[in-house]
Write a protein that binds this DNA or RNA. Structure first.
Lengths: 152, 152
DNA sequence: ATTGACGTTGACGTTAACGTCAATATAATA
DNA sequence: TATTATATTGACGTTAACGTCAACGTCAAT
């Protein structure tokens, strides 16, 4: 039975790729991640405090695994998709539990996805309409400008 | 010289259409507006406190003119376009002052529009990409579900 | 006379997603 | 050795856009 994370690799929720403590596995410091994703360290710690990340420790310091790296990427993608941090956490939980074979949870994930898809489609229409409106408004502004100039 | 509001009627900023105190001009109570636009009276009063509306008074009570009605419509449209209330207020000011012939202000409005258009275009791309990602994820979820069912 | 619908003005509360310190520790570098 | 870079925790601050009271006025209908 193949790991679900394999089936779903390179899609939205690829969250349990590698063992964190594997010897050769690459790790990151907090500022490395911050630089790479162009966010602040504060934000990263905040995500942890919200339960979205749980990096290992090397003494006091946080040590981020490849899995954490992927999770962070997913967090940011989720945000772009319009999910709140709470919803992202929910999706992580649902998805993790679905890898233990909980079919119902997977359906729940699908529902969430569908919900978000509807919202995005609505936004898409709104934006396209807005662009048209703005273009028309702009056109008339420009026309008005030409009139003002020629009357001068 | 035609009023700029005529030139631009039915577009984004059509804000000074009619005299508020004209006899036959239709008026609205606060709750009428609230109902029509499906917002709370609190919101409408808030917009006024932010300087976006300035209805007449009939005693203590607010009396909204057709102009106010149009303004409110524009406020909500502006919000859908992603403008903050501050920005919307700015646009109102710029636009109002441009009707006195301030050419520079009109250019400023155009800049704002252009800015927003760029942002909307970016969002459009983001959303289209997100929809693709979600579809792919969904497809693979469904495939996984079928596998789980057939193995049962 | 009282109920109910509608209006008013404060004033404080809320939420999300961090920002912005402060005080401290450790490690590498000049 | 002094500085600099990087890390930690903790705590309070911020912003936008209202929500949610409280306390009160006014008018029509029962």
């Amino acid at each position: 039975m193949p790991d679900i994370s394999q089936v779903l690799s390179d899609t939205f929720l690829r969250t349990n790729a590698l063992d964190p403590r594997e010897s050769g596995s690459k790790t990151y410091s907090i500022s490395q991640l911050a630089k790479e994703f162009d966010i602040t360290t504060r934000a990263i710690r905040f995500y942890e405090s919200e339960g979205l990340l749980s990096p290992e420790r090397e003494g006091r310091n946080r040590l981020y695994s490849q899995r954490d790296h992927t999770r962070l990427k997913l967090i940011l993608r989720g945000k772009r998709l319009g999910f709140s941090l709470d919803e992202i956490g929910e999706l992580f939980e649902l998805y993790d539990s679905s890898s233990t074979g909980e079919l119902a949870q997977l359906s729940r994930v699908l529902e969430k996805i569908e919900e978000r898809k509807q919202i995005l489609k609505q936004q898409l229409e709104d934006i396209q309409l807005s662009l048209h409106e703005l273009k028309e408004f702009e056109r008339q502004c420009r026309q008005r400008l030409r009139q003002m100039r020629s009357n001068h």
